[in-house]
Amino acid sequence: MKKYFIFLVLVVLLGVVLNSFLNSYIQAIFISFMINAVMALSLNFITGLADQFSLGHAGLMAIGAYTSAVLNKEFFNDQWIMIPVGVLCGGFLAAVAGYLLSLPSFRLKGDYIAIVTLGLAEIVRILLLNWKHVGGPRGYNAITKFPDFFLSYGFAVLLLFITFMTMYRLKISWFGRNLWAINEDDIAAEVMGLEIAKTKRYAFTISSFFAGLGGGFYSHHLGYISPGSFGFIISVQILIIAVLGGLGSLSGSILAAAILTFLPELLRSVQTGSLDLRMIIYPILLILMMILRPQGLFGRKEIYEFLSEKWKTKLGIQL
């Protein structure tokens, strides 16, 4: 219990500092960091732990975002108190989409899920472009926002915390072991009595759920979304975060989300003209990393596993 209390105090302190000493620009960056972390965790769960490549997380994010935004504006009378409900609904709808998608995809081996998810993102984008009621290509405006930063911040921290804890607990449980065993040798895993397709389906549905949550909150954070906010590039950006942190390392994803959210903002001053240099740097980073350090920063391990024994006991971490 003690460590959760310390964590809470730290979070509140950071919130106070952000709220009273820093401007809204930096506050917004903090929130986007947490959304990026949720998205990266979601992708890491399916790609890192279950070894299934998803290229459509932006599509799942879009489902969550539009669901939550539309629900809040059209049905919940624009009340910020209902935002969590909307976000949750977004998560559920994304999970349903993910589940339906996973039905055909895991029937055979291969990287079909990569293409199928890519297709999902594309189909979602096209449907949204053609859906006049939510603005089509112009986007959906004036989405309900939290009235002040503290609420928004609190919700983001809660979201990230829940995402991380869920995935972490699953990673170190029987489910995580099943996923790992499938990665190692699916035939042997099957002979042990494990239903492979079903296990992968669960993993993908869970991942989709959190992608939906992340997307839902994203819409309320920005207050404006359009089909263009969920292009292929976003999927790639999420992928880069997960890869940098280490596929399979959940805490690594959070750290990488921090690095890749704050660093570009720092570099913003050196950017030239209209050109988005990130889209050159990211792929180069990806390729170099795959050749030189494919396991990312932390590989499959969590950050604390690199601490000395003394610190582990001090922090009350037991394996």
Partner: peptide, 10 residues
């Protein structure tokens, strides 16, 4: 696969 994606975007 990840490399291939990287090359494509590059």
């Amino acid at each position: 696969l990840i490399t291939a994606i990287g090359v494509s975007i590059l």
